[in-house]
Design a protein around this nucleic acid. Structure first.
Length: 444
DNA sequence: TCTGGGGTCCTAGGACCC
DNA sequence: TCTGGGGTCCTAGGACCC
């Protein structure tokens, strides 16, 4: 293939010779959060449903009926509340405990269908179908998989299959949109690929966000097909290697790896505060201490430790009438750690050091742990005054106690109990699948 | 009154070294 | 008085994803 200056579509898209044909599947749960809520509320099966973000801030998931009513992703709840009420939409606060557990069930069923599965997000996974049969066989196989997941969990899924991840994403959107595909759409020939790209808006391509769309439209690119006609050096110049990867993937050249996801490189816990935010140092310390404690727990869960922390807090940009401020504090730890007391201590110290005054109302704050390494290969420091082994044992004892008695049964004092900064969740469903006390009841 | 949370990757530019 | 150039590392910021 000449590098980026196609003479014409057919020539440009001739399949590469002598390369094995990959077939990558993308299984995507339909309207995942809404579907999770519906599993336990069959009365909602044909009623519109929406799920709200933390603090009941905005709409983050919509059932098809809600989409048809014109409810948009990201709509601000208080601005659409009247419409939702008028139309009889069932409204839920985010119930991540429930969604996480349902996700595990879906993924566990999917993993029975492919030798390699790459869980990309809470509701999506890539499956490697390469070499598992003829395209027709794989199509049938994937349809069986989709039926199995839907029967086994109550969550409907759509599957796209193609030579690259980006094309598989496109295929899955077709599968979701047109019932005739019976939940699975496969792009296995160049002819189908060209047709799909011509029908596909560039704005909906994986890896193309709002900023890119603006620039692409200005350059006359409106469909995914238009983009593939641009020369590669133009793509490189304007959209860096990131855009070039997408360009190649659309042309059928796989370059987004299907390797297993590595351990996380950063771990973040952050929240918005209800109402207009908090302005007392004590409250902010308490919130930051709890975020830090959660980061430490996530680090230990994946058996890692971190050597740097960032603590941030900022005021609401939607309130220009209030004074604006942004606290951003980095701190490095002498030795990598996942120990509650150390991480909470460092985070609280950082926020104290950067505190300005009660004139600011902080709307959101968070803690990011980074410089992460495995906990079995921590580089020790010669000048470390602490007894590492003792701290490690203490942490393990705390974890054991908390496992039996709940997350924060043993906590740092500064984590407190005041909860002035806690989330608003006025429409929370129960923890049907993870809490014996909230298990579903059948009444006759 | 009320506007989410948790990630990754890439690049530009400054600091620093030889 | 004259004051280089190339490499590497780190960080902030911008873009993207769900």
């Amino acid at each position: 293939m000449n590098n980026g200056h196609p003479d014409g579509p057919l020539c440009a898209f001739a399949p590469l010779p002598n390369l094995p044909v990959n077939l990558i599947g993308l299984a995507d749960c339909n309207n995942f959060f809404c579907s999770c809520e519906r599993v336990f509320r069959p009365d909602l099966r044909s009623r519109p449903v929406v799920v709200l973000s933390n603090n009941d801030g905005c709409v983050v998931a919509r059932s098809n009926e809600s989409k048809a009513l014109g409810i948009k992703m990201g709509d601000v709840y208080y601005q659409v509340r009247d419409v939702l009420e008028r139309e009889g939409v069932a409204v839920f606060s985010s119930n991540y405990t429930l969604y996480g557990d349902m996700s595990r069930r879906v993924m566990s069923l999917l993993s029975k269908y492919a030798p390699r599965i790459d869980i990309y997000s809470i509701d999506e996974a890539f499956l490697d179908f390469t070499g598992m049969g003829t395209p027709e066989e794989i199509l049938e196989y994937a349809r069986r998989m989709a039926r199995h997941v839907s029967q086994g969990t109550g969550i409907p899924i759509s599957v796209g299959i193609a030579a690259t991840k980006t094309l598989a994403k496109i295929a899955s959107k077709f599968a979701k949109k047109y019932p005739a595909y019976q939940s699975v759409c496969m792009i296995d020939t160049d002819e189908k690929r060209l047709k799909a790209l011509q029908l596909f808006d560039i704005a909906d391509v994986w890896g193309v966000g709002r900023r890119y769309v603006k620039r692409l439209n200005a350059a006359g690119v409106n469909t995914a097909y238009d983009f593939t006609l641009k020369p590669s050096d133009w793509v490189m110049r304007n959209f860096t290697v990131v855009g070039l990867r997408t360009w190649k993937e659309l042309r059928g050249e796989s370059c987004i790896s299907t390797e297993e996801l590595p351990r996380k490189k950063s771990i973040c816990t952050s929240r918005s505060f209800p109402d207009s935010g908090i302005n007392r140092l004590g409250d902010l310390e308490e919130a930051v201490a709890n975020f830090a404690s959660q980061c430490a727990r996530k680090l230990r869960e994946q058996r890692t430790a971190c050597q740097a922390l960032t603590v941030f807090a900022y005021t609401s940009r939607f309130r220009p009438d209030l004074p604006q401020d942004y606290i951003y504090a980095n701190c490095h730890l002498p030795t990598a750690t996942a120990c509650l007391t150390e991480i909470v201590g460092a985070a609280v110290e950082a926020i104290r050091r950067n505190w300005k005054s009660e004139a600011y109302r902080y709307k959101k704050a968070g803690v990011i742990a980074w410089n992460i390494c495995r906990d079995d290969s921590i580089q020790l420091s010669l000048f470390d005054p602490r007894d590492r082994e003792k701290m490690f044992n203490l942490q393990r004892a705390i974890d054991v106690v908390n496992l039996r008695n709940g997350h924060n049964a043993v906590r740092a004092a500064v984590q407190g109990y005041s909860k002035t900064w806690h989330l608003k969740t006025e429409h929370l469903s129960r923890q049907f699948t993870t809490n014996m006390g909230q298990i579903i009841e059948i009444t006759t």
